[in-house]
């Protein structure tokens, strides 16, 4: 509600400076990779939050938008040498168009019905891409090596440029989300989340605002998809279009706190290190222990703190006053 307090501004300023200096302080690519993945899922979470957290459209199909973004830029590059930055915009537009296509027939679906429809949509996209010869079908696409430069969206000698680009994407999506949250649109989305009827009697064009939320979310998600493709330089349906990615996006947001701007960032900062560490330390044994620890944590959060970590922080903040 209120504009930011001085304390909040100074804290976020300090965090930003620390994040900017991080690549200079650490060596070793795992430390860099970890932070890039934190930013990446934080951005995906922020994008999800616009439709899931504010408007109550619980999408379990974000991987479709992520994959469409990754595939659009990669295909345009491998087939037509289109610059990946232009590919990024094209991917965003393609994902938003796909979102509109699926959003119209789903415009009256709420709650778990919407969630089921979103899973179905993402699975249709995955299976289709798995069989689509033009874009490599199940074999996927390999992005050919280029000279390293910002223009080419490709870097070999260091992960630092990827780190800064992903950080910039995160800040951009936070800006979009903060704007949505504090504007008329944010109020309208929260009304829609409460009930379509209550929104309608306040003069809200429910379908239009829902579509806007889905399309913004899809665009931002696709943008991250392009980043991921340029970062990994290889993609196939199993790496960008699968359900676990969609689930991870929802978890990051729910853990941190759905319906708050910073929630997904906190969620990603907690969840990604846990998932990456447990995967590296325990995952190779094939025991699934990493997933057990991971799952237990999620259950504890959902039982004891459904408002997420952001909810805990707010409670502490209120007590201090």
């Amino acid at each position: 509600m209120k504009t930011f307090t001085k304390r909040q501004i100074s804290i976020s300023g300090a965090v930003l400076v620390l994040l900017a200096l991080y690549p200079l302080a650490v060596s070793g690519s795992f430390a860099m990779h970890l932070m890039i993945m934190v930013f990446l899922f934080a951005t995906l979470g922020v994008a999800w939050n616009i439709m899931g957290g504010y408007a109550g459209m619980f999408s379990f199909g974000q991987a479709a938008f992520f994959g469409i973004g990754a595939y659009t830029s990669s295909f345009l590059f491998t087939a037509y040498h289109v610059n990946p930055w232009i590919g990024l915009l094209a991917g965003g537009v393609a994902a938003a168009a796909a979102a509109a296509l699926i959003g119209i027939p789903c415009s009256n679906l709420r709650g778990h019905y919407f969630a089921i429809a979103s899973i179905a949509f993402a699975e249709i996209v995955r299976i289709h891409f798995n069989n689509w010869k033009l874009i490599g079908a199940a074999e996927g696409l390999t992005i050919p090596m280029q000279d390293e430069s910002l223009r080419n969206f490709m870097f070999h000698s260091s992960k630092a440029p990827y780190y800064y680009i992903m950080l910039a994407f995160l800040l951009l999506s936070l800006g979009v989300c903060a704007w949505v949250a504090t504007s008329r649109m944010g109020f309208y989305l929260r009304a829609i989340k409460e009930s379509h009827d209550v929104a309608k009697v306040l003069g809200v064009d429910v379908v239009r605002y829902r579509m806007a939320a889905i399309m913004i979310s899809a665009f931002l998600t696709a943008m991250v998809g392009t980043f991921y493709a340029q970062y990994i330089l290889y993609l196939d349906p199993e790496s960008v279009l699968i359900l676990p990615i969609s689930v991870q996006i929802v978890l990051v947001s729910m853990l941190g706190g759905a319906g708050s701007v910073m929630g997904p960032v906190i969620g990603a900062a907690i969840l990604l290190p846990i998932s990456e560490f447990t995967r590296v330390k325990l995952g190779f044994k094939g025991s699934g222990l990493d997933m057990i620890i991971y799952g237990t944590l999620i259950m504890l959060i959902s039982v004891y703190q459904p408002q997420g970590v952001w909810g805990i922080l707010q409670k502490i903040g209120r007590k201090k006053k």
């Binding site: 009827d197 209550v198 009697v201 003069g203």
Partner: peptide
């Protein structure tokens, strides 16, 4: 549509009271 009618100047309440539960009174 209901939202168009609201824009033209008819407002209504519901038999079972409907407010937006995760907002403050002012919001």
């Amino acid at each position: 549509a209901a939202d168009r009618i609201c824009k033209l100047g008819i407002a209504r309440t519901f038999q079972i009271v409907q407010v937006i539960t995760d907002m403050t009174v002012l919001e």
